[in-house]
């Protein structure tokens, strides 16, 4: 066992876990934050995307131990004081989701995307979402959502 401590959604958490515990397992099983999903086992679908120290990462491809001391944000931590993050609001407004399974990871990636590209073109959005797979929407409305959110976020 190894002790891991980190800040998740603004709250300090600590637990003894086996060294082979993935960050996503720590988030889902230890913290019971089940909005972060697992959709593949080869690090491609992006359903498990969270922010570690502000950067989007695939939490299925990172050990919990590697997040020691880090500041982690999951989909549950995105809305502030009961108010949706502009990206969440944009996904709802623009029908950027259907079954909702890829959505938390897609939104977390999109937030990071806009952080890096405050005023993204459609092409940039499509390219930068390479690490997230959606099977329902055909991406049309996801692209629209990200563009709308970027505008609302003051890009």
């Amino acid at each position: 066992m190894t002790t891991v401590s980190m800040t998740v959604n603004g709250k300090k958490v600590s637990a003894d876990v086996a060294p082979n515990t993935l960050l996503v397992q720590f988030i889902r099983d230890n913290l019971r934050l089940t909005g972060t999903h697992v959709g593949c086992d080869t690090s491609q679908c992006g359903a498990c995307t969270v922010h570690v120290n502000g950067d989007s990462v695939k939490s299925c491809t990172m050990l919990a131990a590697q997040a020691e001391g880090a500041d982690v944000t999951t989909i549950e931590g995105l809305a502030k004081n009961g108010e949706l993050h502009p990206m969440q609001a944009a996904f709802k407004e623009n029908h950027g989701l259907q079954c909702g399974f890829c959505t938390p990871g897609m939104i977390m990636s999109a937030v990071d995307l806009v952080k890096r590209n405050p005023n993204p073109s459609e092409e940039t959005i499509r390219t930068e979402l390479e690490g997230n797979i959606c099977r329902c929407t055909g991406y049309h409305n996801i692209v629209k959502s990200v563009k709308a959110a970027a505008e609302n976020m003051g890009g």
């Binding site: 909005g35 697992v38 969440q88 709802k92 407004e93 959505t103 938390p104």
Partner: peptide
């Protein structure tokens, strides 16, 4: 109409089986 179910999905509060 904007979808009623979206609120739980965009906030990570859906209840999928493995949850």
């Amino acid at each position: 109409v904007r979808r009623k179910e979206d609120q739980r999905f965009i906030t990570g509060n859906g209840h999928y089986l493995d949850d």
